[in-house]
């Protein structure tokens, strides 16, 4: 998640103080992970240095008295970011794969590793499902995104569970 681009995008609605910007970000994107003030101001400082925002100071200016406005370069930067696809992350050597292989190598119960992980994934999926049922459309879409990813992980877990004996023969010397 590019916080800088998100802030620039929010500024396209009009100049704002850092505090307003943080609140707006948290409302829309920060349900699980609200921005720290320090991060807001350090990000704005970087955007300022790169010429993507400019400051409209008000009398008696402390940092909270500054209003930030997006520049043309900032608008162009957001457009370029939106046009660029995110790199799909294939997690080819995931921690979980490593755990399964190590369990097999060290004589631990690889099925138990997979079962424990499945239970943990389902626990989170239950939580997200409850949150979604009680939530508005934005909550539902955010939760669905997480649910589909967790579901994909679970499919991998099931496939691995079905092939764990094959894997054992493959990894054991």
């Amino acid at each position: 998640m590019s916080v800088g681009h998100a802030l620039l995008g929010l500024l396209e609605g009009g100049p704002r103080h850092g505090y307003d910007l943080k609140r707006s970000y948290d409302e829309r994107f920060g349900a699980d992970r609200p921005l720290a003030y320090g991060q807001v101001y350090s990000t704005l400082a970087r955007l300022l240095k790169n010429g993507f925002v400019e400051v409209e100071s008000e009398p008696g200016a402390g940092p909270e008295r500054k209003r930030y406005a997006v520049t043309d370069a900032g608008v162009a930067d957001v457009a370029a970011w939106l046009a660029q696809p995110e790199k799909p992350e294939p997690y080819l050597q995931s921690t979980l794969y490593t755990k399964v292989v190590l369990a097999l190598l060290t004589g631990h119960d690889a099925d138990a590793v997979l079962d424990t992980q499945r239970a943990e994934h389902l626990r989170l999926m239950r939580e997200l499902t409850r949150r979604k049922d009680g939530g508005d459309l934005a909550d539902q879409l955010v939760c669905d995104h997480a649910l589909f990813h967790l579901e994909a992980d679970l499919r991998w877990l099931e496939l691995t569970a079905a092939r764990v004996q094959q894997l054992a023969a493959h990894v054991r010397p």
Binding site: L122, M125, T129, L147
Partner: peptide
């Protein structure tokens, strides 16, 4: 799994055995 997420608990059946 998305359907199972509506449950309170899960039991996994594999090769006729329950885990």
């Amino acid at each position: 799994a998305r359907v199972a997420a509506y449950s309170d608990h899960e039991a996994v059946v594999r090769d006729g055995r329950v885990r």
